[in-house]
């Protein structure tokens, strides 16, 4: 049984979201708390199923569209002021939807939809790269250490670029874990999740500071 590092990181991030994003209702920051709560619930359920030797791929397959829709929504909200992200996001989401439907029909949701996840990851990475490009191109100086959206995008960029190799070799790694019990995917994703949720937690603190400073 693998130790639930990822679930702990998610729980800490949820606590940060509740603490620092409380009272924000009118923007996408307000929805992050609900998304984090949903993620933690799914992860705890998935971990419990794994510990009882019950297959949990169908659960993550159900979580995947919610996760991708929310992450694309976040990117749309953050990047919209920098470049026209709408068509790019819709195109990748459409590709994700097609692959997701194909994988679902082909395997009956019993296998993780890895190719649709990979397609959505490429879309997220592309949008992140555009964001960084336009962020640097912008004439005004922005202090990145105080700029909450920057850390949201950085987290997504690290997570999806770092997880590319695991996505490509997903089936091989699953076989290796089954036969030889080498948890390569688990180790890499634990590290990526720590970076991801660390960056998100930091962005919540930045957002909180921004709110308090504008009131004083």
């Amino acid at each position: 049984m693998l130790f639930p590092f990822t679930q702990i990181a998610e729980l800490v991030c949820l606590i940060f979201a509740i603490r620092f994003l409380a009272g924000i209702k009118d923007s996408f920051w307000g929805y992050i708390r609900w998304f984090m709560l949903f993620t933690v619930m799914v992860e705890i359920a998935g971990h419990a199923m794994l510990s009882m030797n019950v297959p949990n791929h169908w659960l993550y397959n159900l979580y995947l569209p919610v996760e991708m829709l929310f992450k694309y929504y976040l990117l749309y909200k953050i990047c919209n002021g920098y470049f026209p992200v709408k068509y790019l996001a819709v195109s990748f989401l459409a590709l994700f939807g097609l692959l997701y439907a194909y994988e679902g029909i082909a395997s009956g949701f019993n296998e993780y939809s890895v190719w649709s996840n990979s397609a959505a990851s490429v879309g997220i990475l592309t949008i992140c790269c555009f964001y960084f490009y336009y962020f640097l191109k912008k004439e005004e100086y922005v202090d990145i250490y105080q700029h909450a959206p920057f850390w949201i995008v950085t987290a997504l960029f690290f997570f999806y670029l770092g997880g590319t190799a695991c996505n490509v070799f997903f089936k091989y790694l699953a076989n290796i874990y089954e036969k030889q019990h080498i948890p390569v995917r688990y180790i890499i994703y634990t590290l990526l999740n720590f970076i991801f949720y660390g960056c998100w937690s930091y962005s919540f603190v930045c957002r909180y500071r921004q709110t308090t400073s504008s009131l004083s």
Binding site: L161, G162, C166, F169, V184
Partner: peptide
């Protein structure tokens, strides 16, 4: 070899 490739490429991407 696959484990090695995955670790190395993940490190490079990271």
């Amino acid at each position: 070899d696959i484990v090695f490739i995955v670790i190395i490429s993940s490190c490079c991407l990271f």
